[in-house]
Structures are given as C-alpha cells and as structure tokens.
Design a protein around this nucleic acid. Structure first.
Lengths: 194, 194
DNA sequence: ACACAAAGCGGCACTGAGTGACAGCTGACA
DNA sequence: TGTCAGCTGTCACTCAGTGCCGCTTTGTGT
C-alpha cells in the first residue's frame, strides 16, 4: 500500500477540478440555474461519478468554503499558547483581512455579493458555522482543559464579532480592509460588553 | 372586500393544519424520511396544493420556527428597561425554554430533528440569523443610544450562548427543558469568558 | 511479463422535490 | 341567482440524489 499513490493524487486533482468548474458555473449563471449535468459534462465525467465525489450539489460550494476554514485554523494554530484565546481569535480574523490588503475593493465586492445575495445567504451561514466548529476544535486541541462549553462559546462569539464588524464595514465604501472594524468589535467584547 | 373573509380564515386554518401534521410526521419519522405526499395525504389535500402553501418542504419547518422569533421579540419588549441587556436576553431564552416545560421530550425530539438533519441545517442557521436581527432591532428600539455595533454584538452573542447551550442539551436524554444549560452558558459569558 | 483483486467508473432505472399548464369547482358580491 | 376571480386537483415534466450492475483501470504479488 503506497502512502500517496497515483490514484489518490489523481482523485485530488479531479476533486479540485470539479470545484473549480462548479464555482465558475455557479458564479456565472447562479447556483440554482446550474445543473449537476452541466458541471459533469464540463468536467468530462459522468453524473454518477460527480455524485461519488460530492454527495450534494451544495457540497461543491462547501468544499470551496473549506479553504477559508483551513486558513483560519492554520492561523490559530500559529498563535502563542499563553495568549488569551479571544486575543488569538481576534488576531486570526485580522490576519485573514490583511491577506486581502492589496485588493480591499475586491474583498468588499465579494463580501457584499455573498452576504447580501438572498439565495447565497444560507451558504454564507453554513460557512460561518463551519468556522465556529473548526475554531472550537482547534481551541480544544491546543488546551484540552478548556472544555466544550467554553471553546464553543469563544469560537461562536469570535465569529459573531467578525460578522458584526463585516456588517458595519460592508455599509462603507470599502476603500480599506476591515481590520479596524474587526479590532473595534473584538475590543467591545473584551471591554465587558456583557 | 371583507376584512377577514371565510376564504382567508379557511386558508389560515389549512396552513396551520399542514404545519401541525408536517411537524408531527417530521418528528416521528425524521425530515428526509417523510415525503411531501405523506403530509398531503394526511392533510387530505393534493400534493400541488401543499406546494402552493409552502414553496419547499423545509418551509413547513420554517413556518413553525417563525413563531419562535415573534415569541422572543415580544418577550424582550416585556423586560424592564433598567435591566442589563444581556440579562434580558438570558431571561428571554429561558422563558422560551420554559414554555415547553410540560413537554420536554417533544422539544428535545424537535430540536434534534432540526439541528441534526443535514438538509435542514441551512434553515436552522437562517432562523438563528433571523433571531439575531430581530433581537438587535428590539434592543435599539428600547434604547436607541445603544448603537449598531453594541446591539448587533449583544444579540449575536446571546444567540451564540443559546446555540451552545442547546448543543450540550441535545447530547443528553432530554428529560428536562434546557433552562439550566442556557443559564450556564449566559453565566459563562457574564463571568468574563473574554 | 503476467495474473489477480480491489477500486473507480459509467450506464440505467428508480424515487422524491419542485414547477408549469390547464380544467373544474367554489366562495364573494352584485 | 348569475358571474367571476381565485382556489383546487390532475397531469406531465425537470432535476437532485441513489442503488445496482457490469466494465475498466490500477496497484501488487509472483
């Protein structure tokens, strides 16, 4: 049994290709207007095969979203262990914003598109729920004694802060990346909003 | 044009009846295992008519859930103004739980059905987002000087606390209503989780 | 080089959700 | 009581998702 055989790598490429083609068609024609058959045909696989890679059509979008989750969790794993978890989470979201620092307008346009398009709303929320679960898991992995309740709360409150910050920022022109808004929201949480 | 004609009242009753029957079947057999035809047959309407009342199968669950938003906002409006907003929100969620105090097992079964059925997840998140928006709006309506940031954060953190509490409670047998879990989650938030 | 087993793949047929069109019925109102 | 808008059921269709089966590919042992 080879560690990373030809088969596995081929599958990974195929999977990535399907996501790429699917996301392109979705953004061009809309999610509902794009059929699975179209994606399968464009990727030159059978419909049945596509459903072996992705259980549902929405899973293609979720696979794409998983990329952002991976960025966040990797970033959180890099934070010093003696830092307060909420400060780590603050830093993680700020870092994500800063990765778009060269193209603030693009980030603004995409954010508004995703958050303010009604048919896309459920997927955005699904993505945020994915963030919450993944971040809570990393918190427990870093300090197991933190517990389910505390890790779950911290992750959800952090995502809540980010969503609130993004909400404010989306009402602006978006000439700059929303780091200041994120810091302000986390600051409000820290300063005993409670 | 009569204010509340026979037709309108008949429709309202029909609509409520469909929700009642649908929710009963969903909680008995699960959401995916229940077909629209079953619900239609049990309610003695045609499949097509059911789809005129509810655009999708999930809308039946959403209609049921919509009631909860109204309950929450009404409950929040009744809280004393000198109470700390987070305490008001805590009380509001506890009150919602207590309204199910006679049928804790039913609440447990329905909660698990809604939260743990993958195809229902987006709708559950949509419902929570609806709660957040509605509760934030009531907070601003009660004390306009609270501002967008603070009201948004408070509402989202409250819903985060409730979701975390519900998550823990759903892992139990559900012999009792989750009031204790809710209080514990809000307590953790209050006690400077941050 | 050859054979073999396992896994992936495509085709087919099926169920269930959701929709458009059309025809029949019924309640509101003059 | 007749008229008509609006509700209802029937039918036929598209698309998502699944089980089954036979074929092909690929990793592996001899």
């Amino acid at each position: 049994m080879t560690e990373a055989g030809l088969r596995e790598r081929k599958q990974e490429r195929q999977r990535a290709e399907l996501v790429r083609i699917g996301m392109r068609l979705f953004s061009e024609q809309g999610f509902d207007a794009t059929t699975v058959d179209e994606i399968a045909e464009a990727a030159e696989v059978s419909r049945r095969t596509l459903f072996r890679y992705f259980g549902t059509k929405a899973d293609i979008v979720m696979e794409w979203a998983r990329g952002t989750t991976a960025v966040l969790t990797a970033s959180l794993r890099d934070r010093p262990l003696d830092e307060h978890p909420m400060d780590s989470l603050n830093a993680v979201f700020v870092a994500m914003c800063e990765s778009f620092i060269e193209r603030p307008r693009t980030m603004h346009r995409v954010s508004v598109m995703i958050e303010r398009t009604p048919s896309l709303r459920p997927y955005s929320l699904l993505k945020h729920a994915q963030w919450e679960d993944a971040l809570a898991a990393v918190l427990r992995e870093r300090t197991p004694e933190i517990g389910e309740l505390r890790s779950g709360l911290l992750a959800r409150i952090a995502v809540a802060a980010f969503r609130t910050a993004l909400d404010e920022w989306m009402s602006t022109e978006g000439d700059t990346v929303p780091t200041a808004y994120v810091d302000r929201a986390f600051g409000a949480v820290r300063d005993g909003l409670v």
